[in-house]
Each structure stands twice: as structure tokens, then as C-alpha cells.
Computed example of a mutant assay.
Amino acid sequence: MCEVHRSVFTEMAYICQKFQDLTTNDFIAVSSSNIVDKGSTTWRTPSNIALVKYWGKRDPQLPENPSISFTLNNCHTITSLSFEKKSKIDKSFSFKIIFEGEEKPSFQPKILLFFERIVTYVPFIRDYDFVISSENSFPHSSGIASSASGMSAISMCLMQLEKMLNPTISETYFYQKASFLARLGSGSACRSVKGELVVWGEHKEIKGSSDLFGVPFTSEIAEIFKNYQDTVLLVDKGEKQVSSTVGHDLMYGHPFAKCRFEQAYKNISKMKSILEKGAISDFITLVEKEALTLHAMMMTSQPYFILMKPKTLEIIQKIWDYREVKDSNICFTLDAGANVHLLYPKNEKQAVQIFIEEELAVFCQNRHYIHDEVGSGAIELTGL
């Protein structure tokens, strides 16, 4: 039985009190004399894959433990936000959602909740009629963090509107607030604003780290972890049986929750050292243990559930066999779904991608997989 003398939450709260410079009040938009009647903006924001996982949160969308992720490049969402000043200003939110060319009323409740959470910080959203048009480069709701890329894309668009209204805001503030807003839509979305490695959650060893937004990992990174590759093996493109939101809620009262939060906090320290030293064997062990721990928490919650599929396990075994036979540095991680992220250094790219096509594609739905790599974060698209 794990004895926790002081919970991670308590330690993080202490650190927050001592070191955190920004509070939620710092993100309330200031009034501006600029008038913007209508316009549009388009951003492309990536998904991300956590190396040390976050699983469990408290209101309002704050993590119970810190996490660190690779920002991806090819798995992304492109969102255009069109806006026009309401003819009559009221307290309601006015928006229409178009996803991959079709209007999506089913997305309305999530965006409405998001607007309700952020209106204190961007009160101007009550003044406009919005059309939100999005498309993904990967299957929605299949466990590739579509909410992360989707909510961060909307947040970038809203911050672009805020900058039109108040051109004096700094670039640093722009991105920090975009991450802050994205977090209120989907926790992991705050890690999709910047790259290449992003930490979310207070940690005494990560300079500037915060529960309120993600921060780039600024320590030195060994050469082997630069340009890291991630092939997403699409075992199941369908929507997950249990949403991440439900899964997070099941950490309340979970018998192993406190031990897990403490473990993740310690694993951030370990990962920091691993990334600095280039200790790839330790990286493999820690990343795979984190993935399996995440799913172990799902399998031991009440009610318990399993998101892995039989083909997920077959892929994992194939990865282990290949690593042993070829003396390779490949490893896997899992998000909250059945799909497998195969991580490997760029110097193994050619050999690993042959292995994927010859031995792993057969376990993927319609032999579908996505070759990806570490990316730099959100990009504004112009001329669209």
C-alpha cells in the first residue's frame, strides 16, 4: 500500500504559492478603443502525445499531476473563425460549427461550455456572431487528442481577434493566454500551442511551469531526442467507448489516484534528466510504463473500462520482439484509446517504417497509419 505523507496536490499548491507569477486575473482582456466589425482568421494547431501522462483533474480544468508531451506536426486541426459584430448586443453566445464541410449541432454543447468558461477572460465573444469551420488531418475522437488540437485551434483564433481589438498585447502574453484558454476547453489542448516539448502543471524543477497553461521545456535536449518520429498506428478509427472527460472524472475516489499523482510528479523529474542526458534506454522504459499505467488506471476505476483492443496488444508484442532482435530504440506509448504511437529516433526512420509496413500495418484498420514527427506548434495560415 502506498503511503503518501504529502499529496502531490499539496506540494504543487505550495510551489504555486511561492513561484507562480501569473494568476487568472492577468488573463482578463482589457478594454480597447479598437473597433473590429467583422473579419476572419485561420490557424493550424497540432495534436500532442504525452510522455508522462495527465489523468485526473479538478475544477476548473486543472491537472492533478504535471505532464510532458511531444508536440506533433502532421496530426493537426485547421480552424477558421469568421466573426461579425451582432446587430444587437446581448449576453448570449452566437456560433455555428462546421466540421469537415458539414454543420455539426452535436458539437454545440462542448463549444457552449467552453465559451461559458472563458467569457470572463474574453468578454468580447458575446459581441459577435461566429462561424467556426474545422477539419482534421486524422480521425476525430479516436484517441489521437483531437480535442487538444481542436480546442487549441479555436483558442488561437480567439486570441487573434483579441489582438485585433488590442494590438498592444505582447507575443508572450498572446501564446500564454491562448494556452490558458485552450486548457479550459480541453486540458491537454494547452500543450498544443507551442512545441517541441511542452510541460503542463506545476513542478519545482521546471522553470515557469504552471497549472494554468503549458510551457515549453527549456532545458537542454540531447541530440537523439531532436526530430523524434511518431507513427500513429490506427487500430480503431471509431469514436472511443468512454470519453476522456468521463475517464478523468473516474479518478475521483480511485483507490490508486494519490499514488499515481505522486508517481507522475516524480516521473517528470526522471524525464527531465533523461532528455538532458540522452538516456534512451531509460526513456523507453519510462514512456512505456507511463502508457501502461494510464490504462491500468482505467482498468481499476469504478466502473472499470478497457480502451485497448486485442490488436493493440499484438502490436505491443511485435514492438518488443523487434526491439530485442534488432537492438532497436523503438518504443510505444498510448493515449486514451486503442491506437498505438510508435516512437523512434530519426536515425532509425527508414528501417522502422519498413517494419511498420511489413509487420504492423496488418493490425491497423484498413492498414492505415500516420507518419508524424515532433513539430513546433500552432501556425497562422494566411490567404485562405
Rank of each mutant, 00 (worst) to 15 (best):
112 L>S: 08
9 F>D: 08
303 P>V: 06
191 R>E: 02
2 C>L: 14
232 V>S: 06
321 D>N: 14
339 N>R: 00
369 Y>R: 09
330 I>C: 09
281 S>H: 15
208 G>N: 13
71 T>C: 10
377 G>Y: 08
118 I>W: 01
282 D>N: 13
169 I>G: 01
62 L>D: 03
110 K>T: 08
156 M>C: 15
181 L>S: 02
96 K>P: 07
115 F>M: 14
217 F>N: 01
313 L>P: 00
8 V>I: 05
79 T>M: 06
333 T>A: 05
68 I>W: 04
171 E>I: 06
279 A>W: 11
224 I>Y: 08
270 K>R: 13
186 S>V: 06
45 T>Q: 03
199 V>P: 04
89 I>A: 11
293 T>A: 09
87 S>V: 14
364 C>V: 07
335 D>H: 07
7 S>E: 09
87 S>L: 14
108 Q>L: 09
177 K>D: 13
282 D>F: 06
32 S>G: 12
369 Y>C: 10
49 I>G: 00
172 T>K: 13
289 K>E: 15
240 K>Q: 07
237 K>T: 11
315 I>H: 01
194 K>S: 10
125 I>E: 06
287 V>L: 07
132 I>Q: 02
224 I>T: 11
80 S>F: 03
362 V>W: 00
57 K>I: 08
50 A>G: 05
128 Y>N: 04
52 V>S: 05
112 L>N: 10
108 Q>A: 14
197 L>T: 05
287 V>D: 01
240 K>H: 06
76 H>V: 04
231 T>M: 09
188 S>H: 03
382 T>G: 03
283 F>Q: 04
251 M>W: 08
101 G>H: 00
147 S>K: 04
155 S>L: 01
246 V>E: 09
23 T>Y: 13
167 P>V: 10
174 F>W: 08
290 E>N: 11
234 L>P: 01
107 F>T: 02
88 K>C: 11
264 A>K: 02
321 D>Q: 12
13 A>L: 13
29 A>P: 06
172 T>L: 09
140 H>A: 11
194 K>D: 04
328 S>V: 07
136 N>P: 09
35 I>Y: 13
161 L>R: 02
58 R>F: 12
1 M>Q: 11
40 S>L: 07
148 A>C: 08
231 T>S: 15
165 L>R: 14
4 V>I: 15
92 S>R: 12
150 G>L: 03
188 S>R: 05
233 L>Y: 06
186 S>K: 01
26 D>E: 13
32 S>F: 04
210 S>N: 11
148 A>V: 02
123 P>R: 14
379 I>G: 00
285 T>W: 10
159 M>I: 01
38 K>F: 15
58 R>A: 07
247 G>A: 11
3 E>R: 13
86 K>D: 05
216 P>G: 04
195 G>N: 10
277 K>Q: 15
23 T>K: 15
83 F>R: 02
26 D>G: 13
119 V>K: 10
137 S>H: 03
346 K>S: 13
87 S>I: 15
178 A>N: 07
60 P>E: 09
136 N>W: 05
362 V>A: 11
196 E>G: 07
295 H>P: 02
202 E>N: 14
294 L>V: 07
22 L>Y: 14
